[in-house]
């Protein structure tokens, strides 16, 4: 998953480069501040997750669905641990300067725990970043 998100970021960079060489084209889009959401799927029921999000300008992280969030944003990476009764789908939101750069944010699942606190394989889960609805 991390690989797919990184490829998306490279493609977006090439497109900006092309437009910059055409002065007669439309003006570049203006940044749109807003929230991005991290959604987790696959792997069955879980109740705790530790993940990292890499990208610029992350602020105001918050857990979704009433879960509890512990986080750290030092070093330009958001390290977040979300725990709750049960978790599914969207687990985390955070604010960014431009939601148009959503594809620039890379999320990685580090650890997952089941509802009985048993460890679950992170490889069984995937996480994506998208503009929060």
């Amino acid at each position: 998953m991390r690989t797919r998100v990184l490829l998306g970021a490279v493609a977006a960079g090439l497109l900006v480069l092309g437009c910059g060489g055409d002065s007669t084209g439309p003006p570049p889009p203006q940044p749109v501040p807003g929230e991005l959401a991290v959604t987790v799927s696959g792997g069955g029921a879980f109740a705790g997750i530790f993940l990292t999000v890499t990208g610029s300008g992350i602020t105001a992280p918050a857990a979704s669905g009433g879960a509890s969030l512990y986080y750290d944003m030092s070093g330009g990476t958001l390290s977040a641990t979300v725990v709750g009764s049960t978790l599914s789908g969207e687990v985390l939101r955070f604010s960014v300067p431009d939601v148009g750069d959503a594809s620039d944010y890379v999320v990685a699942v580090q650890q997952v725990a089941g509802t009985s606190n048993q460890p679950l394989s992170p490889g069984g889960f995937s996480a994506t970043v998208s503009v929060a609805p």
Partner: peptide, 25 residues
């Protein structure tokens, strides 16, 4: 791991004590 962390939060009664929608830095 995160399972131990969650279990400890449960044992101490802290699980769910974080205000909904916010986080603890």
């Amino acid at each position: 791991d995160v399972g131990d962390f969650r279990a400890w939060l449960q044992f101490t009664g802290m699980l769910g004590s974080i205000r909904q929608g916010s986080g603890e830095e």
